[in-house]
Design a protein around this nucleic acid. Structure first.
Length: 574
DNA sequence: GCCGTTTTCGGCCCGACTGTTTTCAGTCG
C-alpha cells in the first residue's frame, strides 16, 4: 500500500499528546515517561519510524517496545489510536493547556475539572477571577494571582515558538562571559544549558561561576548596562533580561562542586537521567553536588567535569553530544568520535555576492574569507541572476582577482535551482565550466515526498553537480522541512559522489544534527558552508560546525576540511 | 510502557522551590 505514512514529527506529537492525556487521567508516571521517551526517540530518528514499525523493526530503537510499535501501526492504518479516542471521550482536549499553565500540573488540572468543571483556559481564567480556586484544598489566593498573571502576560502563540535561534544568542552570551571574567569578581565562569550544548534554538541562557564573594558577583551582573530588567537577584543567583529580550540565569556555586554543578546545569535532562540511572546500577547516587557511594555513605564532590565523568567510568563527553543518543555507552568504551572543529575547515564552499542577491562585492567577500583564514572560497551566486553572459563575465572577474590575490583560491561556483521536474536552471555546458556546483530546491516545497526525493535524485545524477544545498529546505520556526526519502538520497549521494551541505544560516542549519549523522554513517561526504550573503555571515560557519558536532561528525567526514586539491580528487568523475 | 553483567518482574534520577501546610504534595528543571 502506497498511502502516505505519518512523519516522525507527527508520530512524536501523537505520543506526546497521548502522554499528556494519560497524565491528566492519572496514569502511572513511568508509563507517561515511556511514551515521552519514545516520542523523543522517534523525533530523533533519521529514518521514518512508521516504515520501521510496518516492517516490525521499530523495537530496534531503544525506548520503543512492542506496545508502542503496535500503536504506530494502528495509527498508520486507521489515522487514530483507540487509546486516545477513549481519553478524548473522558477528558476535554482543552485541559491539556490548563495543565501546562506554569504552577499548575496534571493533578491540579484534574481537580479543577472534577470540582469546578474547568475545561479550557477561559474557564480557568473565569474561575480564578471569581476567586473560586481557593475553595479547593491545596490552592489559595496566591495560586489565583499566579494563574491570572501567567494567563495575562504572554500571548499563547509566542509560547509555542518561544525558542530563540542559537545564532542570535552566542554573541550576547560571550559578552556576558567576558564581562564576568574581566570583573575580577569571578574565579571560574562557564556557559551551561542548551547554549553550551549548542542546540539550534534555546530558551534561557545559563551561566555558572565560582567566586570568593558571590553576592558581589550577582550584584555586578544585575547591574550591567545591557540589562533591561532584573527578574530575580539573590546572593548566589541572578536572573536578568537583556535589551535584546534574552533571559540570562547566573548561578554562583562553591568551587569544590563546580564540576558537578556545571555538568548538572549543562544537561540535557535526558543525558543526566540516563547517567544517573546507570550510576544507580553501580551503587552510586549522582546529584548536582557530588557522587554518593550508597553502601559506604561516602560522598565526593567534583571540581571539574573531567573528574566527575572519570569517577563514573566515562571519558569526558563533549557538551554537544549530551543528548542520550549513545554517547554514554561510547564514553564508557572509549568509542567517542573525534569531533570536527572550526579550525579543521579549510574553505567555505557556498558564498554569494552582489552578482546575485548578496550584499557584498566579490572582492569584499573574498577578502573577508581570507581574513578568516580560508584557503579557498566558492562563489556560488544564483544561476537565474547570471543569464545573458553575466556568468562568463563573473568568471573573468574571478580569474582577474585570483591573479591579483595571494593566500586564497577563488573558485568559480554557482548555485543552480532544482526545478519541479528535477532539471537544473543552467545547461550542462555552463555547469561544466564552473569549478564547483551547488544545486538546491528553492520552490515547490509542498510537493510529495516521492516528488521531492525524485528532484534531488535527478539533480545528483547530473555529472556536474557537486553538492546539494540546504537539502531539506526547512526554516527553523517558520517552515517545516519538505519530506524526503533520506535512505534513497544518501544512497544516491554515495553512488554519484555528490556531497550534501550542512548549511550554516542560523535559521536553516540544514541538514540537522540527526540527519547529518545518518548521512555520514551511510558514507555521504558532508560540506559545511555558510551560504553567506554578507561579510559578517561568514562567521556563521561555527553554527554549522556545532550542528555537525551534535551529529557526531568527524573531520574526515567533512569534505572541506581538505585542501582544494584533495577535494577535487573526491568529486564525481564523468 | 520499557528493560535486563544482580532481574522476564520489579524496578524506573535527584533535589529545590512553592504554597499550603504542621509534615507535605505538586511542580519544575
Amino acid at each position: 500500500m502506497a498511502s502516505k505514512l505519518p512523519s516522525n514529527e507527527e508520530l512524536a506529537e501523537l505520543f506526546e499528546l497521548l502522554a499528556d492525556m494519560l497524565e491528566l487521567d492519572g496514569a502511572d508516571a513511568f508509563r507517561l515517561a515511556a511514551y515521552r521517551r519514545a516520542a523523543g526517540r522517534i523525533r530523533d530518528s533519521a529514518v521514518p519510524v512508521a516504515e520501521l514499525a510496518r516492517d516490525h523493526k521499530a523495537t530496534r530503537l531503544s525506548g520503543i517496545g512492542s506496545t508502542i510499535e503496535a500503536k504506530i501501526v494502528e495509527y498508520t492504518e486507521t489515522g487514530d489510536l483507540a487509546a486516545l479516542a477513549k481519553l478524548r471521550a473522558k477528558l476535554p482536549a482543552g485541559l491539556v493547556e490548563v495543565m501546562r499553565v506554569p504552577g499548575l500540573g496534571p493533578k491540579t488540572a484534574r481537580k479543577l475539572h472534577a470540582e469546578l468543571g474547568v475545561q479550557t483556559l477561559d474557564d480557568l481564567r473565569a474561575a480564578a477571577e471569581q476567586e473560586r480556586l481557593r475553595v479547593l484544598p491545596g490552592l489559595g489566593a496566591k495560586t489565583e494571582e499566579k494563574v491570572l498573571k501567567s494567563l495575562a502576560t504572554p500571548p499563547r502563540e509566542n509560547v509555542a515558538t518561544g525558542r530563540i535561534l542559537l545564532g542570535r544568542v552566542l554573541g550576547p552570551v560571550r559578552r556576558a562571559l567576558r564581562e564576568l571574567e574581566e570583573s575580577g569578581l569571578a574565579e571560574r565562569v562557564s556557559e551551561a544549558g542548551s547554549v553550551r550544548r549548542r542546540c539550534e534554538t534555546v530558551k534561557d541562557l545559563d551561566l555558572i561561576a565560582t567566586a570568593a564573594d558571590p553576592p558581589a558577583l550577582t550584584a555586578f551582573f544585575a547591574g550591567r548596562p545591557w540589562v533591561a530588567e532584573v527578574v530575580a537577584h539573590g546572593p548566589t543567583k541572578a536572573t536578568v533580561v537583556s535589551h535584546e529580550g534574552l533571559r540570562f540565569d547566573l548561578r554562583v556555586v562553591p568551587p569544590e562542586s563546580y564540576g558537578s554543578l556545571l555538568q548538572h546545569f549543562t544537561g540535557s535532562k535526558e543525558h543526566n537521567v540516563a547517567l544517573r540511572e546507570d550510576a544507580v546500577r553501580r551503587g552510586l547516587s549522582v546529584s548536582e553536588y557530588g557522587v554518593l557511594e550508597v553502601e559506604s555513605g561516602q560522598s565526593v564532590t567534583a571540581a571539574s567535569e573531567e573528574e566527575l565523568y572519570e569517577r563514573l567510568g566515562y571519558s569526558w563527553i563533549a557538551p554537544e553530544l549530551r543528548e542520550n543518543r549513545g554517547e554514554l555507552e561510547a564514553a564508557r568504551n572509549s568509542g567517542l568520535p573525534e569531533l570536527v572543529s572550526l579550525a579543521d575547515l579549510k574553505g567555505d564552499l557556498h558564498v554569494h555576492t552582489d552578482w546575485s542577491d548578496g550584499r557584498g562585492t566579490l572582492e569584499e567577500m573574498v577578502l573577508a574569507a581570507l581574513e578568516r583564514g580560508h584557503r579557498y572560497v566558492a562563489i556560488c551566486d544564483h544561476a537565474r541572476r547570471l543569464r545573458e553572459g553575466r556568468l562568463e563575465r563573473q568568471a573573468a572577474e574571478i580569474a582577474a582577482l585570483n591573479a591579483r590575490l595571494r593566500g586564497i583560491r577563488i573558485l568559480s561556483g554557482v548555485e543552480v535551482d532544482i526545478r519541479a521536474d528535477g532539471a537544473l536552471d543552467l545547461p550542462d555546458e555552463q555547469l561544466e565550466a564552473r569549478d564547483w556546483v551547488m544545486a538546491s530546491v528553492h520552490s515547490g516545497f509542498d510537493g510529495s515526498r516521492e516528488r521531492l526525493t525524485g528532484r534531488l535524485l535527478a539533480a545528483m545524477d547530473n555529472p556536474h553537480v557537486d553538492c546539494i544545498g540546504h537539502p531539506t529546505g526547512r526554516k527553523i520556526n517558520r517552515r517545516a522541512p519538505y519530506e524526503l526519502d533520506f535512505e534513497a538520497v544518501f544512497k544516491r549521494a554515495v553512488e554519484t559522489c555528490t556531497f550534501l551541505e550542512l548549511n550554516a544560516q542560523p535559521d536553516r542549519l540544514d541538514l540537522t544534527d540527526v540527519h547529518a549523522r545518518a548521512a555520514a554513517e551511510a558514507g555521504v561526504g558532508l560540506v559545511i558552508s555558510t551560504d553567506a550573503h554578507r561579510v559578517h555571515e561568514l562567521d556563521n560557519l561555527e553554527l554549522a560546525v556545532a550542528q555537525a558536532r551534535r551529529g557526531w561528525i568527524t573531520p574526515e567526514q567533512v569534505i572541506n576540511t581538505r585542501q582544494w586539491r584533495s577535494v577535487q580528487s573526491l568529486v564525481k568523475r564523468l
